[in-house]
């Protein structure tokens, strides 16, 4: 009886020790991979930071009208943003390597899926970034033109333009990532249609007054003073 208990205890201890022995190298490999990747990430980030600062990257970006990156960056510094992106990319890669070495059951499926979705994720990020750039550019163009045309609701028009482009870019990115499927398309169609309808109504109702004012101007005295009478050049 005592021998059987001893065997069972020995067996259990052996299994646990074997389990721990097989588990520990993986755990150590994971810890080592994370530590090394953190160190490497920090070093690469610091190196990139030095190079970008030497090129005056933040100012150059501002000069090229790429202010959106600065706005979305910590402390308004695209250099810092890129530095952190590089650091964290290396750290995440280190985690993936560690998890693979650890041999957890989920990783064999997780890693191919992550790798597979990377190009789509990259494209989606580019689409969103371009969308944000275009939205800002068009919003500013509409705002300035509307003010120069003396349209009182210039800011509203500019905001509508900005969100129209942003929504369009977001829908394209989500569609590319195959997130949401038909719901995104349907939601986008409803939202886009709604914005266009709202704009049509706003412009239609607003134009009513403009048209009537224009008729009034034409029917009243033609010598009404205006800045159009000036030759600016």
């Amino acid at each position: 009886m005592w021998d059987q208990i001893k065997d069972a205890l020995y067996g259990a201890t052996h299994r646990v020790l074997v389990g721990v022995a097989s588990f520990l190298p993986g755990l150590l490999a994971l810890v080592l991979a994370v530590l090394l990747s953190s160190l490497l990430g920090w070093l690469l980030g610091a190196l990139l930071g030095l190079i970008l600062r030497a090129f005056d990257f933040d100012k150059r970006l501002q000069k090229w009208d790429f202010v959106v990156l600065a706005e979305w960056s910590p402390k308004n510094s695209p250099t810092l943003l890129l530095r952190k992106t590089v650091t964290w990319t290396v750290v995440v890669l280190g985690w993936l390597v560690g998890l693979t070495a650890f041999g957890a059951g989920v990783t064999p499926q997780l890693i191919p899926r992550v790798v597979e979705s990377l190009p789509n994720l990259g494209t989606a990020i580019v689409v969103v970034l371009l969308g944000v750039l275009l939205a800002r550019f068009l919003a500013r163009a509409v705002l300035i033109s509307a003010v120069n045309m003396q349209i009182q609701s210039a800011r509203l028009l500019s905001m509508a333009m900005k969100w129209l482009v942003l929504v369009f870019a977001a829908a394209m990115a989500l569609d590319h990532l195959r997130i949401g499927g038909d719901i995104v398309r349907l939601g986008f169609a409803i939202l886009f249609g709604g914005i266009v309808l709202a704009l049509a109504l706003a412009i239609g109702l607003g134009s009513k007054e403009i048209v009537s004012r224009s008729w009034e101007r034409q029917s009243h005295s033609k010598a009404e003073p205006s800045d159009d009478a000036l030759k600016h050049l």
Binding site: V147, Q150, A154, R155, S226, D227, L230
Partner: peptide, 18 residues
Amino acid sequence: PPVDAHKMWESFRLGCRT
């Protein structure tokens, strides 16, 4: 020719607001 300074000033004010 007569010129409407008020209308110009209003354009300026609209610019300042927006």
